[in-house]
Write a protein that binds this DNA or RNA. Sequence first.
DNA 1: AGCACGCCGACT
DNA 2: GTCGGCGTGCTC
Length: 826
Amino acid sequence: MAPSGKFYADVILPLPLRDFYTYAVPEEFESSVTPGVRVVVQFGQQKLYAAVVFRVHQQQPKGYDVKPVMNVLDEIPVLTTSQLKSWQWISDYYLCSPGEIMLAALPSALRLQSESRIVRNESFEGDTSVLDDREFMVWEALELQPELSLKDISKILSIKHVIPVLRSMIHKGVIRVLEEVQEKYKPRHVDYISLHPESREEESLGALMDSLERKAPRQLDLLLAFFQLTRDAGQDEVNKAMLLKKSGAGHAALHSLIKKQVLVLETRREDRLPHFRGTLKEPFQLNQHQQQALLEIQRAFAGRKVTLLHGVTSSGKTEVYIHLIREQLGKGKQVLYLLPEIALTTQLIQRLLRFFGSQLLVYHSRFNEQERLEVWTKVLSNNLNTGQQPFLVIGARSAVFLPFERLGLVIVDEEHDHSYKQEDPAPRYNARDLAVVTALQQDAEVLLGTATPSMESFFNALSGKYALVTLDRRHAGLDLPDVHVVDLRDVRKRKQVSGHFSHRLLERIKEVLSNKEQVILFQNRRGFSPFLECGVCAWVPECVNCDVALTYHKSRNELKCHYCGYVQSPPVVCAACGDQDIRMRGFGTERIEEDLQILLPEARIARLDYDTTRNKNDFQKILGGFEDGEIDILVGTQMVTKGLDFDRVSLVGILNADSILHYPEFRANERGFHLLTQVSGRAGRKKPGEVIIQTYNPDSPVLKFVLNHDYAGFYRHELNERFRFHYPPYCRLVEIRLRHRHEQELDRMCMELGKELRKTFKGHLLGPTIPYVNRVRNQYLRNFLLKIDKTVSTREVKQQLFAALEIYRSKSENRSLSIALDVDPV
DNA sequence: AGCACGCCGACT
DNA sequence: GTCGGCGTGCTC
C-alpha cells in the first residue's frame, strides 16, 4: 500500500472487538490527532463513540470506505505512550483485544457513547394525517416531551422494535434523530461564605448584631455560627452547607445577610479528592527486625528490581512500606500501592493519610466515576509537570492501569491474594503480574508483600528471579498464635458438640468474652443452609438456570442461586415425592450466627459476608462496630481474612476446615493453607492468641503445616506435587472456557475443537472437562486446559492458538460457540 | 457490544 | 398478517 498523502488513525473502540478500526483524519484535525487522544467516530449506522487513537499513519486502507474522524476531544492525550505499549503487551499475553483493555482500564467517565434522542423536525409543516396510529402516538408524545429516547418510545408504544416506526417517520420528514457524545464529567462546585470587606469593623458589626437580635434572630444565629466556625478552623471563610447545618438557619436568613452585604458568597470549582488538613505525623522508628528487613530490601533493589517480602502476620510490614514510600516520594517518584479490594479499609487509609496527607490518592471500585477520573487526570498532569509534588496511589487491581510515567516503586500487598486476578470479563489479567511488568518498563522497583507467598512468587524468589526478604518476628516479640485442631468425628462420638460447635470451642469463646476480648468465627459459606433436601427421597431444590442447589436464606425466607441471583420461595412439599419432610442441610454464616446466639444469648454477634455488605457503607459500619467493641463475635466468610487488624481479638474459630481444603482444583492446598494461615493471623495482635480449627480430617497434611506455622515445609510439599503432576510454577496454563445453550451441540463442538487444537498442541491439551458447576445462566459449560512450557513465548502460543481457532470458526456450524481464554487461571 | 436482516412459530 | 424470538454477520 502506497502512502496516500492523507492521514489515517487506527483507533481503539470501547467494545470487545478483535481489532483496531481505521478512520480518515480530516485536514483540520491533522495536528491534533495523536496517539492517546480521544476522537469522536461513527461506528455502525447511528452510534458515535469516543475512541482512543492508537497510531496515525498514511497507509490508505483497502476494501472498505473509510469514515472520517468527526471531532477531537482532548488536547492532551488521556493515555501515555508507555501505556499504549503496555496495552499491546497485555493483549498479547492475556489473549484479549485492545477494546477489552480499554473497557477495564479507562475510567468510565472517559468512555463515551452516544444515545439516540428523537425530536420533532421543526421544518415539518405537512399534515399529520400521513401518520399511522403508532406514529401519531410518538408525534403526540413529543408535544409533551421535546426529546425521547428509544427506550421511552418503546414504553409509550409498548412494543420492542421501535426502529421500523421511527424509520418511517424520518422518511416522512416528521422527526429527526440527534446523536452526539457528551462528556460525563461535571466539575464539583462548592460554596463558601466569608465576611464582606465593609462589615469587618467591630463597631459596625456590634451594632448590626444588636439590631439582628431584636429583628432577625435566625440571622444572628447564623452570624454567631459563622464566627465560631471560622475561629475553630483558623480560616476566614466557611463551607456554606456546613454553616447552614451548624446554625440551624435556612437559606432565607443567609440570603438576607448576603443582600445586606454582611456576608459574601463565593462558588469555587474543587476536586473530589480527599483533602487532608491537620499536621502530618513524623517518621517513626522501626524496630530492629523491621530495620533489618528495610536494609535488606534496599540492598536487594540495587541488584534485582523485584523483591518478595515474606513477613508473618503482624510483623509490621506496613511500617516498612511507609519508609520505602517516603524514600521514593523524596526522590520525586510516583508510588503505587496495590491491595485486594476488601483490604482497602478506611482503617488503613486513615493511617496512611496521617503520614502522607494530600500526597495520598485512593483509587478503587467503591469510588464513583467522577472521583476516578479526577485521580486519573491528576496522575496525568503529574507526569507532565515535574514541578508538581509526587504522590502515592493506593488502590485495588484496576489501579495498575493508571497513567503513571514516573513510577519509582510498586508495592503489591497480600500478593498471594486471588482477587488480583480478574476472572470475567476479559481482560483476564493478574494485577500483581501486570504491576511487575509495568514497573520494570519504567525501571521502578517492586515489592511483593505477604505472610503466605504464592507458589509462583516463592518459586521465583528461590530460583533467583526475585530477591527474598523474610520478616519472621511479630510486633514486640509476640508469639504466633496457638493453633489447635478439633477432630469433629471424635467429639461427635463422645457427644461433646452442640450443633456446629465443639464444646472446646464454646468453652473458649465464653472465656474470651468474659475477659472482654473478641472472637472471629470463619465459615466458608454464606446464607443459612447451603441446600434443602427431602428427607424421604433426597430431592434437592435446584436453580432453574444453573446446575447448582439453591441456598436457603432464612432472614428473607427465600432460596437463592449464588451463581445467577435467581430467587424463589422455599417449597412446602417435595417436588419429587410430595412429602412435607423438607430438611436443611449443611450450614452457612447466617446459621452460625443464629445458632450461636441461642447458645450464648448475652453475646453481641455480627455477620460479615456478601449479604450483609450490599450497601456502600455496610462493610465499614460492621468493622467499625467491631473495632469499637460494640460487637463481641464476628462471624464471616473470606471477608474476615483480609487485612483486618483488631487488637482485642484473642480467639479465631474455623467451623469447618474441610470445606476449604477439599476442592477439585490444583490450587486447593495452596488456597487452603493461605486461608487458614491468614485467618489464624487475626488472633492475638496484642497478646498471644488462639486458633481452633474444627475438621473431620485432622490428618490432612495441609493442617499439619498450618499448625506448625511451617510455610517452608508446606511450600516444599506442594512444590513436589506440582512438579509430579506438571502444574504451575512448572508450566503456564491457559484455560479455554466454552459456553453454549444446548448441551449436545456443545459436546459436538467441543470434540471438533479438541481435534483441531490437538493438531497443534498434542498432549499439552487436556479436556474437554465438565466443570463442577456445569450450567450457569442457562448456558452449558466445558473447559479445555492448555499446559505450556515456560520456555515458549506467549506470543507464539497466541499465534498458534488463534490460528487453530480461526480454522475452527471458519465452519459456520461452529460459530455459535462462545469461547473465553483465561491465561494463568486462579 | 449494538444493530440489521432473515427465518420461524404464535397470536391480536 | 405482524410481533417477537433467535441465529448470524458486520461494524473502519
